[in-house]
Nucleic acid binder design. Structure first.
Length: 866
DNA sequence: GTTCTAGAAC
DNA sequence: GTTCTAGAAC
């Protein structure tokens, strides 16, 4: 039985023959670009009939898309479909879902009876490895004694959120089986006492060192325990975490929830409460608790543990201090690699409080306790202060960030996240909502929030998912809206999220949608009115959006104050609903750089029902803007769409238009009709007449050098289909074309590498709002060493989400059938973001300084990629 | 997409 | 003095 271990941690069991890994093309090199897992294999299987056959079958309720690239063209396999491969054939297997269950089997008809695979083996191809943390089997006794993981710095008897979970922990659940009891936590784990002194060399990330994992102040090692289990013996290096012994969410993708905060800020208490309250599997990963031989674990071990948990469909809580962006980036990259959303809860308790708590505790697994621990807290607080990446920013890649300034905030965040994955029907959702309300209300000592009317919508799966998630997040929003300093970033996140909930949205969600920063959730009634106005005309909503986002000051100096635009969510369209509505108002006669040909994408799509109808279309243009939910729920949406015979959205498509049908044509940002914007189109349609030097030409694409390269190597792969003016014209059926564009690009990159072996990584992607007509993909090296890179817009167009990585677009097309354009507000913000190094994320004051920096930046040198 | 210009900010 | 932004024109 040959086995192939996929990056997801899953096995492929092959009854006969072998799967030989050729190598892994890890697209995780670019955090934002990662959407898939890739493994290259060679099939080597023979049958008694002399013709080899290996059957690959996608499997699972998520209806994953399994793309099997077998030479060219590639095949796309949907659930239940399979492909046969011949002996020695090389192929790439692309799993578009990290939790994809892949079944590999020999064709039974070709197998000799004695060699047929064990039915059980095929029925359960996902076999946790010894190093895998199963949400249901995590912390098996031999692997991870259940001590020391949760009970670190955050046993806070003085905290209302820790000591009284009546508000914070819905339902006052019993302690999960694998969570340590207080008694267990205080008892040293057998086998780990020896050698505890060595732990003094590194307290893990608790250390105030900038590098995060570098050694910190020496501390005594007495009384430290390991939840990593096995002492210094067996299991070293294995992935460990503590799960809550609950099943993974059946219909929700796992998430990475990164906690950030000083020691003593309440991270582990947050984890414990969430794991108790949540109905789904969470695995708690704490670097200090992953100990081996008395030494704290490494970041890599945390990542390994997270990978294993995600592979099992469990959500992950990454419990580290995460004081700067660099530390956080590892887990953002992991989330991106796995195609899951990364969220953050930033616990920003006053350092004095954290220090007091740390000083009082005596059983922290990393020894951050007592007076020594107190010093660590203040050192870390100082580093946070002088650094430029605290608090965490959505621009780092988080889908959402919940800023918690006190225990009440933390309790509300727990309550909100406890709703994630909570299934319908109405009874449970109502209970969850009530719990969230109770938490929010208790936290403030105020009346319950007003979104208790959230009802289980009776619509499609998609609607239910969105509504469920909206409730989850509205619970936090309701809290955030009541506190003194609402977070603009969170408000910006919730607003489109609530809109996306469509008819299922609650009053609070509507409030979040309409109120914005000026009056977040202050009153459901005005908000509902605003929402109604938005649905009708969009004008009022546009105003609200402007209030929310605010006018960015002309000064380029970035401010880290709450409400700074930088804290907005990446990929979130703050004015999405309103902007789309505005587009309706402003819709003009459709323009194009050329009249679409008969039967072209534009002509076909407009006003017609599309099988790849978009999510959110059923609630009008105002509800279909790109937002956090569209990212978070992408797979669920795909599932919902694929669930019905003709797609759940098919019936809806006829009643509404997708924003992309409007924006490219009517949005003034798309100046695709300008004469100067026609050059690429001329190249595409008449390459011989364009006078352009062409490096590659075929029926589908042309590759040219960018006329104003922004890096040492910068090319454009231009689609030749005249109907494809921009990415908004793309549909799911164009995925093969995109794949071809990628291949052409990769070939060009290989050539460039031959000439310039030291070239940094390359990126493939598209500008969110292109200036030139005709779909074109940028292929650009990451040195950004070019005199043509002259201003902030240039820089940000390649280093912010304005640059849509190839994989992201491909995933969006697969998931939603089309690309949803960003809003003008988001475009503006992305263009004007501070100048941040794409390697180390440090902000530079000016472009010349940035250019100097990137030449010397080790992180840039270390970039790997295509 | 670009260049050029003027004015402001540093 | 340099650098940035914004607008106009192409």
């Amino acid at each position: 039985m040959a086995k192939l271990l996929f990056p997801t941690g899953k096995f492929l069991n092959v009854a006969r023959g072998t799967l030989r890994p050729l190598g892994r093309a890890d697209v995780a090199r670019y955090a934002e670009a990662v959407t898939v897992s890739r493994v290259q294999c060679v099939v080597s299987a023979t049958t008694d009939k002399g013709h080899p056959a290996l059957k690959l079958t996608s499997q699972g309720s998520q209806n994953p898309t399994l793309v099997l690239s077998k030479q060219e063209p590639h095949n796309e396999l949907s659930q239940g479909q399979s492909a046969l491969l011949g002996d020695g054939e090389a192929f790439s297997l692309i799993c578009t879902r990290p939790d994809l269950a892949i079944r590999v089997e020999m064709d039974p008809a070709d197998l000799q009876p004695e060699s047929r695979p064990e039915p059980d083996a095929l029925a359960h191809p996902i076999t946790p490895t010894a190093a895998t943390t199963s949400p249901s089997k995590a912390a098996a006794p031999a692997e991870a004694p259940s001590s020391g993981d949760i009970q670190d710095e955050d046993k806070l008897p003085s905290s209302p959120y820790a000591s009284d979970d009546g508000g914070a922990s819905p339902g006052r659940p019993t302690r999960p089986r694998h969570l340590p009891t207080a008694a267990a936590a205080s008892a040293p784990a057998a086998g780990t006492a020896a050698g505890t002194n060595s732990a003094a060399s590194s307290p893990g990330e608790e250390a105030p060192a900038a590098a995060g994992d570098t050694p910190g102040p020496s501390r005594g090692g007495q009384g430290r325990r390991s939840s990593g289990g096995g002492g210094g013996g067996g299991g070293a290096g294995s992935a460990r975490g503590v799960g809550n012994d609950k099943p993974p969410a059946a219909t929700r993708p796992p998430v990475v929830l990164l906690l950030a905060g000083l020691p003593g800020s309440g991270k582990s208490t947050f984890s414990r409460l969430l794991m108790e309250a949540s109905p789904i599997a969470w695995v708690h990963i704490n670097q200090d608790a992953i100990r081996s031989g008395g030494r704290p674990g490494s970041r890599e071990q945390c990542i390994t543990a997270a990978k294993a948990a995600l592979a099992q469909g469990a959500c992950c809580i990454i419990d580290r201090c995460h004081g700067d962006a660099q530390q956080r980036s590892s887990f953002l990259a992991l989330a991106a690699e796995r195609g899951v959303a990364a969220h953050c809860v930033a616990l920003q308790q006053p350092p004095e409080l954290c220090a007091r708590r740390v000083a009082d505790r005596t059983d922290h697994p990393g020894g951050v306790q007592g007076n020594g621990g107190k010093r660590v807290v203040y050192q870390m607080a100082k580093q946070q202060q002088v650094g430029n990446s605290w608090p965490p920013a959505c621009s780092e890649g988080f889908v959402s960030i919940m800023d918690c300034n006190n225990d009440a905030d933390a309790a509300a965040a727990v309550a909100a996240w406890a709703l994630y994955g909570r299934e319908e029907p109405a009874a449970s959702s109502a209970a969850a909502t009530t719990a969230a309300e109770a938490a929010a209300g208790a936290a403030h000592g105020s009346a319950q929030v007003t979104h208790g009317s959230a009802r289980a919508p009776s619509g499609s799966k998609k609607q239910r998912y969105l509504a469920e998630a909206a409730r989850t997040l509205a619970a936090w929003e309701a809290h955030a809206g009541k506190r003194k300093r609402p977070s603009a970033g969170i408000t910006a996140f919730f607003k489109p999220a609530a809109a996306a909930a469509g008819s299922g949205r609650s009053a609070a969600a509507a409030a979040a949608a309409g109120a914005g920063t000026a009056a977040p959730a202050a009153s459901a009634a005005p908000a509902a009115k605003a929402a109604a106005g938005r649905a009708g005309a969009g004008a009022a909503g546009t105003t609200a959006a402007a209030k929310l986002v605010g006018k960015r000051p002309a000064s380029p100096v970035p401010l880290a104050a709450a409400g700074s635009p930088k804290r907005r969510a990446v990929g979130v369209q703050p004015g999405g609903a309103e902007d789309a509505g505005g587009a309706v108002v402003e819709q003009k006669k459709k323009q194009s750089c050329d009249k679409p040909q008969e039967g072209t994408a534009g002509a076909r799509e407009a006003g017609t029902s599309s099988p790849a109808s978009q999510p959110g279309g059923d609630s009008g243009a105002g509800a279909s803007g790109r937002n956090a939910f569209s990212v978070l729920m992408a797979s669920a949406t795909r599932n919902a769409r694929d669930g019905g015979p003709a797609g759940a959205g098919a019936a809806n498509a006829s009643s509404s238009k997708h924003p992309s049908d409007l924006d490219t044509a009517s949005d003034k940002r798309f100046k695709l009709t300008a004469p100067w914007a026609q050059h690429l189109r001329k190249v595409a349609l008449s390459p011989e007449d364009s006078g352009q030097k062409i490096f590659h030409k075929d029926d589908q694409v042309i590759l040219i050098a960018d006329a104003y390269p922004k890096a040492r190597h910068h090319a454009l792969v231009i689609a030749r289909d005249p109907s494809l003016r921009s990415i908004t014209d793309l549909r799911a059926r164009h995925v093969p074309l995109l794949s071809h564009m990628r291949r052409v690009a990769e070939e060009w990159v290989r050539d460039q590498r031959k000439q310039d072996p030291e070239t940094a990584a390359f990126k493939l992607g598209f500008h969110a709002v292109p200036s030139m007509c005709q779909l074109h993909m940028h292929v650009v090296s990451q040195d950004f060493d070019s005199p043509s890179l002259k201003n902030k817009k240039h820089w940000n167009s390649f280093t912010t989400p304005f640059f849509i990585p190839f994989d992201n677009l491909e995933r969006e097309l697969v998931a939603q059938g089309r690309h949803t354009p960003i809003s003008p507000d988001e475009e503006k913000e992305l263009e004007t973001q501070e100048l941040r190094c794409h390697g180390c994320s440090k902000v530079q004051k000016s472009l010349p300084e940035l250019k100097q920096h990137i030449v010397a930046c080790g992180a840039v040198k270390g970039l790997v990629g295509l």
